[in-house]
Amino acid sequence: MTKVGYFYTDCLVPMVGNNPYATAEENSMELSINAEVYSLPSEKLVVLQIRSPFIKNKYRPFCQTLFSWVKSSKCARVILLSSSHAYQRDDEQLLGTPLRYLLTPDLEKAVGGLMQDLNWKEMEKVAAYPGINDTEKVLHIPGGGITKLLFTESCSRGIQMAVLLKFCSEGDNIPDAFALVNYLNEWLQLIKSKSNNSTDTSSQWKIPSSWRLLFGNGLPPALF
């Protein structure tokens, strides 16, 4: 995918670094900022990657800007890749796959059946007042940041949005990233699996060069 632009906003904490997807010396020194847009015309796919946290009290303005951009650039569907705290799952969520999806009513009509065929699990709603009233259920995505806000806003604005998320624990999230991208690929079929086993595409994904040194620096030689 090629970088086609920036999502320049006052809602995100500023951050700069060199190209996180550098593959060679030539492209390693291109500046990257906190929110960038990539496109893949052959798949009619545009990716917005958000790399820094939100500034306090700026979630709602960000949501507004994002939706007006989605509208003006005529995106038919929006897929939000997100996560939720693994330690806050209820009994039901602890069972089976850690991957979940959510569809807005407008998208449900179009792809609801496909999700059933893929045997995907919809994100469960949880009791609003556990132990007191189990009938009133709400959507709860702890650790998901603005996921819930974006989803509920999409529902009311009639935007076709799907949320794909994984329950994650803090630490090395590289396996989580692979699991989530494979989950997305099951649906969109962005890359075809070489083997017959359709879920095994992990070996075909490339690890960005910026994922190095996840656990800090080298050790002082004096330690040994």
Binding site: Y6, Y8, P14, V16, G17, N18, S28, L31, N34, S210
Partner: peptide
């Protein structure tokens, strides 16, 4: 030049981002 995965934050990053987006030659 700064190698991956190093990043810069705060006001220096804000100024450099501004320059990148508005195509102003800038160095940090």
């Amino acid at each position: 030049l700064l190698e991956q995965p190093n990043i810069v934050r705060d006001l220096p990053a804000a100024v450099l981002s501004y320059c990148q987006v508005w195509q102003i030659p800038a160095v940090l």
